[in-house]
Amino acid sequence: MPLGPAITDVAQLKSHPALARILAWKPAAVEAARYDRDELTLSIERSFIRDVCALLRDQAKCPFNFLSDLTCVDWYPSEPRFEVIYQLLSIPNRERVRLKVRLNGSSPVVESVTSVWPAANFFEREVFDLFGIRFSGHPYLRRIQMPEDWEGHPLRKDYPVEGYR
């Protein structure tokens, strides 16, 4: 299976159930779409992420009822620096979609999706712990992997692999 070129044209991709539903609700919420290696990635405007997640979970035709994963990528030193990644899975339809929210480095805050999927609880705590991203509305946003009194966020790219000595 040689790699085909990625499709980035929203008009070509709008047959996908997730994208179609969001476009029907609020076209401004989708910043970009990309179909690459059989996976669809949608960049969502930061302020809409919780609503988009609730929308995709509750749609009747293809409900994305399962949050597979939530993580983050640090694109230091470019801006916007952080990308929070949501991997959604529709168990009845066997369909996946990836949502992405871009956050700038100075004060990375995004709305928590724990009210949509309680599964996000530990995932968001881990991203908070290792990347320093704040999730507003999270019920218990404390460090999960590192000790409570740890300084810094180890998975950021400006944090040395061997740690500070």
Binding site: A6, D36, R37, R98
Partner: peptide, 22 residues
């Protein structure tokens, strides 16, 4: 490796084991 990102999930004995590689 050509630039891009993938999420691959397999059924591990415990459930959905997934690797997100950028």
């Amino acid at each position: 490796v050509p630039a891009g990102e993938v999420y691959q999930a397999v059924e591990s004995p415990r459930g959905e084991m997934g690797y997100y590689v950028v």
